[in-house]
Design a binder for these strands. Structure first.
Lengths: 118, 118
DNA sequence: CCGATATTCACCCAATCGGATGAATATGGA
DNA sequence: TCCATATTCATCCGATTGGGTGAATATCGG
């Protein structure tokens, strides 16, 4: 059903959220601690967290009044797959095109050598 | 200056644009031909193209009144890099955590064997 | 020069985003 | 019980997005 890929790419297409993920890579953190270094309100960070949760990139575990956030790497697999697939497709095509151009160049050079069309 | 990464991730975080890129993987195409299979106006596709151009994922070559669009894979490298870096970071940490838990389990089991705290 | 084709430009609109604020809820601790 | 702390909920706002329409621009073909 692949709505996941949209959510994942959407989630990481924002520098604040990428920074949050990067910070969480250091280990579980409370919302407040996580939000502290950012130049925005706690609430705004909370919203970003929700978007990351929707993409399943972040998991939440409650311990009393504290919400401990941690990272889940799995959704990134799908994103990496898409990128790698496209990259392979494209570069294959562009390489083929490159080869074609080289062949044409050689043919032109050979025609020139024979002096058929100066 | 890395505004590129934002543009790239933003650009591919939309299914229509991903479809456009996929289609362009087959080779250069005119705007009209590119737009045909999509259930939206030519203008809307044109807008998506502009966003892909901003991210440098798509290049434009004019030939008379036709605009030929082609793919440029390079911006994807940066996106792939970010994903791979994060993935490595996260999984390394999670694996370490896993190992830690296993060690604790073994310690607990050994304590139990000795009957120290039933 | 004229009409058809290819594409964008200039708007318009509803929905979403990223941020802010203030109130509500829930838990911890004295 | 009372107060402080941790977090979200409910709104509000301006900017951006994704879509649409109609007009403008440029080129091709006769």
């Amino acid at each position: 059903m692949r709505a996941t890929l949209n959510h994942t790419l959407m989630a990481i297409a924002d520098p604040t959220r990428r920074a949050i993920l990067h910070k969480l890579a250091g280990g579980e953190e409370r919302v407040t601690d996580l939000a502290r270094p950012f130049a925005m309100s706690l609430n705004s960070v909370s919203k970003h967290i929700r978007i990351l949760e929707r993409a399943r990139l972040v998991r939440r575990r409650r311990s009393g009044r504290e919400h401990l956030l941690s990272i889940n790497p799995k959704p990134l697999d799908e994103a990496a797959d898409w990128i790698e697939t496209q990259r392979a497709l494209w570069t294959a095509r562009l390489d083929a095109l490159d080869d074609l151009l080289k062949v044409e160049d050689r043919a032109a050079a050979s025609r020139k050598k024979k002096g058929s069309s100066p």
